[in-house]
Amino acid sequence: MAVERFPVEASHILMFARSIGDSNPIYADESHAASTEVGSIIAPPTFAQASAQFDPDYFLRPKDGQKWFGSGGTASGTLVKEKADEDSDSEDEKSGSSAGGLHAEQHFTYHRHLRPGDVLTAETKPGESWEKESKRAGVLKFSESITEYRDQDGELVVTARGVGVVTEKVIEQ
């Protein structure tokens, strides 16, 4: 993933803070923020993840003219149709991988906090990958990625490390 332009905007910060149920005025109220040691509105600690909005290829966003794997007339716009002709109860169809994997870990190192007006770039590189056996979901395949967020001056502002997991089967509840 590479994001060439991630403009950090006050309205996006406001919506993001609302979505995590955080009514802290540091995320919404400019005059309050000006009176604090921080000095201005900042973004909540996990906001960098919303760079997905600015990744042109982000696979978990429906795109104009492309089939989407969520439901429409059928349970899936893409996955089911191909498999429906085969065996609709096939194990593969029920595997966790049909959901594109799950998020296993996320880490952020803050060199400074993001503010409205920042224009970031994000560059992601693959990290390590490993496997583990689990009782509830079979073989787990983990893969790591490292994303560096840089500001308009080229300074590193946030380093993110994500770990995704693809499960062999749906996690037993």
Binding site: H12, M15, F16, R18, S19, Q49, A50, A52, Q53, Y58, L60, R61, P62, W68, F69, G70, S71, A75, S76, L79, V80, E93, K94, S95, G96, S98, A99, G100, V170, I171, Q173
Partner: peptide, 23 residues
């Protein structure tokens, strides 16, 4: 909507129960 992660496992009951296999 805020994060941009529209994975249907988080919002699409039909997909998540019939395709992904979660309750």
């Amino acid at each position: 909507g805020a994060s941009g992660d529209y994975n249907p496992v988080h919002s699409d009951e039909k997909f998540v129960t019939e395709v992904a296999g979660y309750p």
